[in-house]
Design a protein around this nucleic acid. Structure first.
Lengths: 212, 212
DNA sequence: GCTGGTTCGTGCAGGGTGTGCAGAATTGTA
DNA sequence: TACAATTCTGCACACCCTGCACGAACCAGC
């Protein structure tokens, strides 16, 4: 990125940040979130609690790690003006792209997941974060409808429809994420997505079980 | 419920609980959630902070109010063994029934909603609660599939399908709730639900825009 | 290298939430 | 009324988090 090698300051900063996050996650995995204090974490990294707060802001943040990224403005732009045959597929493509952009430390990630999953308070927080992202994406989808010249519908209707797309995408993504982290995973994300879209259609549109 | 009129203790208890919740919500609506302390709330009800905690357990709980109820065992039982043509419709009926069983103080409810909506921390918490309910309902739906003798599918597949139903229901319910609280609401819940199911089908299954 | 300026880590004081405990106050009952 | 059971309350405490100010570490220019 930068022509010069990162300064000592910068390198120390990154190292400390990583150390604190890792210590937080590992301690929580071992003793349970509630039984880990900020003092313990900072002590493990040979620094002061005050510094911990300067870096992470809260105990929660240390465990949850960096916020899941929103699609970049370029990705959003492309999605909005795209004219694929299926909104859901295009939307999922965008989200998956933005999610797989930055590589993750798989081991730490999985440890995080375990801690989060076994701590109601943290599961709660993550659900909330997802919810926020959904709200933002919802606006993006409605924007795409508008860009496509859907003039027969009111803004409210388009927003409702966007909401449905989000709800569907949510199902697909949860399904996909679950599969992705299963032990013997050996397929591409896109295959998984196609599968789960099929699943949605089956749930909803199975012609052998018509509505009413 | 009980043959005798509630005792003085019981009546005072209920009165205090309501007073504390109302005070919490009203103070938060006026000054903002962060600027209201437990001390303020308890003082407004002429009691001690310690008592507040005995009643509510946390400041959050006071604002959020009673947890949204899960369907009763009987309702769940009925749903599981029902053989309606459409799982989604049956499921939504059950949820709506359980939700509309206990009448709510509409005014306080709306004030709550406003406070929650304008406080990220509280929105987060509510999303989380919804998420928990969804997880439990998901198991119920999978149970129904099993009871219906869906032997061609594995447990995992049924669970995935249940997940999709939840995702869809989520969309429908959000849509419905939004409409329900719009000013000039003059239709039945069931009409709304039918509308939004139509919407889902349109989003997903519009034959004029086939997949691929 | 030395030095001055800047950034960053740290201790301290303090406000807020939430909990265990034990005694005081209130209610139910004989 | 007097006794028993329940509930309220004050107190001490642990923990989370923040503002502030001082001192240490780092960087840049000489």
């Amino acid at each position: 990125m930068s022509p010069h090698r990162a300064s000592l300051r910068e390198r120390k900063r990154v190292a400390m940040l990583e150390a604190l996050e890792r210590a937080a996650v590992e301690l929580a995995a071992e003793h349970g979130y509630d039984h880990v204090t900020v003092e313990m974490i900072s002590e493990a990294c040979m620094t002061s609690p005050r510094t911990f707060y300067n870096y992470l802001g809260s105990k929660e943040a240390a465990i949850l790690g960096p916020r899941t990224p929103f699609a970049s403005p370029e990705q959003v732009e492309r999605f909005v003006h795209e004219r694929g045959p299926d909104v859901l597929v295009d939307f999922l493509s965008m989200v998956i792209d933005s999610l797989t952009e930055t590589p993750v430390d798989r081991e730490l990630y999985q440890l995080r997941q375990r801690v989060i999953y076994t701590t109601p308070e943290l599961s709660a927080k993550r659900l909330a974060i997802d919810g926020e992202l959904e709200a933002r994406y919802r606006a993006v989808i409605a924007e795409r409808f508008r860009a496509a010249g859907r003039l027969e519908a009111t803004d409210a209707q388009l927003d409702d429809e966007a909401h449905m797309v989000i709800a569907l995408a949510r199902g697909v993504l949860t399904y996909t994420a679950a599969k992705w982290y299963e032990p013997g995973f050996d397929r591409t994300v896109r295959e998984l997505i196609e599968d789960s879209i099929e699943l949605v259609k089956r749930v909803l549109g199975d012609p052998s079980e018509p509505l009413d």
